[in-house]
Amino acid sequence: MPPAGDVPPSGAGATRRRLMLGAAAASTVVTIRPALAATVGSVMNCEVPVPDPRLGAGKWIDGRGQLVDAGTAGSFRPPNRPLKAEDIRKAMQGANFPGADYETSRAYMAYIRKLQNGMSGFTCYQSLQMPRA
């Protein structure tokens, strides 16, 4: 195989284009995954119930964001109302939720970070993860 530079990139009469292969570890494909949630989120008001009432009615949240039985040591009573998008945005930057202390707020955020597609609040949280200065 000829070394790089043997053939000028666009010499007259050149029929073979030069191709740099690069390193095996390099990355050459970026797949575009449009952030529908980002744009939709920016035009809507949304909220996240903690926990999803279909999955954890009556459950409390432990420090890692897992649902546990009410009263479990080291767990926290869920908020009375779904958490508002703006409060989640602030909590993502370190603030506490209204009426909640530091540990409780971190537990709620741990739960929210574990949300999966199909769970209540997933779309809302997705919309908040998108950067917007």
Partner: peptide, 14 residues
């Protein structure tokens, strides 16, 4: 509550 032809899960009332 905002409803319509197209709605979003998690939408919150104002």
């Amino acid at each position: 509550m905002v409803r319509g032809d197209f709605t979003l899960p998690d939408a919150a009332p104002l």
